[in-house]
């Protein structure tokens, strides 16, 4: 007779002590952020989709289409085209196509780039109903930003 009674009292106590934890939580500050009204700052090393870096001296893209990023990509999502402009010493990028539908944000391309011509963007709100929006020409994007 004693054991079942002890079980009932002990069991009831365990429920009450659990409830005490839950009630104490009501008086603690909120831990969530009310997205989309508020949003968090991405950390400096955040790996977003890549973007081309502009050379502050010339105002043009640093990239000279050496295609190392294209080779390093495990998912074949980068296509780079370059051309030698008149009077220029080396090639400059004319097309930098990123197929973001295939990209897994591994960062191999950024690591492979020796001239720091690509970096991670901090964009993360990347939703669309149109698949074509994720096949982006980063060079055109950079040009458009410059204007």
């Amino acid at each position: 007779m004693k054991q079942p009674l002890r079980d009932i009292v002990g069991g009831f106590y365990s429920l009450l002590s659990g409830m005490r934890v839950t009630i104490a939580q009501f008086f603690k500050p909120s831990v969530t952020v009310h997205y989309p009204h508020e949003s968090l700052q991405m950390p400096a090393r955040f790996r977003g989709h890549i973007e081309l870096v502009r050379d502050p001296a010339t105002g043009k893209a640093v990239c000279f289409a050496c295609k190392v990023c294209e080779k390093s990509c495990p998912s074949d999502c980068i296509t780079v085209e370059g051309a030698k402009l008149e009077g220029a010493k080396r090639k400059s990028v004319t097309q930098f196509r990123l197929d973001f539908t295939k990209c897994s944000l591994c960062g191999s391309c950024v690591e492979a780039c020796k001239s720091n011509a690509i970096r991670f963007s901090r964009q993360y709100n990347l939703a669309s109903t149109n698949k074509d929006e994720f096949v982006m020409d980063l060079f055109k994007r950079l040009e458009a930003e410059g204007q």
Binding site: L15, S17, G18, R20, V21, T22
Partner: peptide
């Protein structure tokens, strides 16, 4: 410790 009180010791 809190998890112990909240869950581990819970009779259910």
């Amino acid at each position: 410790g809190m998890y112990r009180t909240l869950v581990t010791e819970n009779i259910i």
